[in-house]
Simulated scan of single mutants.
Amino acid sequence: MSTHANDPKWTRRISTCARAMAVAGLAIAAAGVTLARYDAIPKLAGFGGLAFGGLLALLAFVLGLIGLVLNLRHPTPTRGRAVLALVLSLPFVAFMVTRPALSGTVPAIHDITTDLANPPAFTKLPLRADNLTGVGTVDNWRSIHAAAYGDLKPVRIARAPAQVIADAARIAKAQGWEIAVEDPAAGRLEATASVSFIRFHDDIAVRATPADNGAASVVDVRSVSRVGVSDMGVNAKRIRAFLKELQGA
């Protein structure tokens, strides 16, 4: 009787299944994020593919461990399949698990601004119809926002609004944002930024209000994600970095 015939069937099956799941998980995730990046499918569908691929990778990792243990007890020709499953799935699982931790503790909101009472308005870029998703009311949004991002305030810059907007447009272009409105006379800028490999789109509005008889400006910024409920803290980070650079321009 051959060695293969004497191999424990469950060791072979589990090791083979682990390898298949690991490969499938990577393939589904790669297809999802790539198709979403080029808008062949909706962004959230692409993210869903990434999440589902991550789940398959987690199952592959567990089965790979089981298959490896079984192979140590009863060596079979499928030991390499269990090892390959672990090698393929571990980095992917680690990536998925660490994403929430890296974003820190942030609230499930996606509309972030320096002025809660009167956020900069979008005049050309449309504000999403479901912008209150996850919060329900404007008052709830303001309460959650104030508790999480109390450091975001208007900034005063000793430059005229027209110059501030010109500087803001230069910074935006350098960061790869797509400018939709650049109106120095009105003290207004609107632009769209892309986030992550999938290229989620976030819309930004910058408002420069005259101060000191026009010699200075009070600057407000608003950054809104087009899809999803939580922005994982991305919009607040963008506003902080943008204002810091604008103040130093």
Rank of each mutant, 00 (worst) to 15 (best):
A208C: 10
R207L: 14
A101Q: 14
I204M: 05
P77D: 12
I28A: 06
R73K: 15
F122M: 12
T192G: 10
Q247G: 15
G67Y: 00
H74R: 13
N118D: 15
R222N: 06
V83P: 02
W177C: 03
I157V: 14
G248L: 14
M232C: 10
T105C: 02
A241V: 04
K244D: 15
R19C: 13
G32H: 01
S15D: 09
P77Q: 12
R199N: 14
T78P: 00
D130E: 11
W10E: 12
L50Q: 12
T137H: 03
L58C: 13
P210A: 06
A147D: 14
N71T: 11
R170N: 13
D130V: 03
S15F: 03
M1H: 13
M232F: 13
L59Q: 05
A36M: 09
R142L: 03
T98D: 10
L86E: 02
M1C: 07
L59N: 02
A45E: 11
K124S: 15
D231W: 01
P184C: 05
A36H: 02
L125M: 11
T98S: 14
F122T: 07
L132W: 06
T98I: 14
A147C: 04
R142K: 15
E245L: 14
P154A: 07
R37D: 12
N213P: 02
G64I: 01
R12N: 13
L58A: 15
I204T: 05
K237W: 05
T113A: 01
D167C: 11
V106P: 10
P210Y: 01
F200R: 03
R81K: 14
A22R: 04
A5W: 08
T209A: 15
A148Q: 06
L152Y: 00
P42H: 05
R19Q: 12
V229Q: 12
A27R: 03
S103G: 13
V234I: 12
A208W: 00
Q175A: 07
A191H: 03
A216E: 05
R79I: 09
W177P: 05
V83C: 08
L116Y: 07
D167E: 08
A174D: 14
R226M: 12
V219M: 03
V155Q: 02
S196G: 01
V155W: 00
Y149I: 05
I157D: 00
D39G: 04
R12H: 04
P120Y: 00
T113C: 01
L58F: 13
R207D: 07
S89G: 02
A193S: 14
R81Y: 13
L246Q: 04
V164N: 02
A191K: 02
I165S: 01
T133S: 12
V97W: 05
D111E: 12
L68W: 15
V138H: 08
L243Q: 08
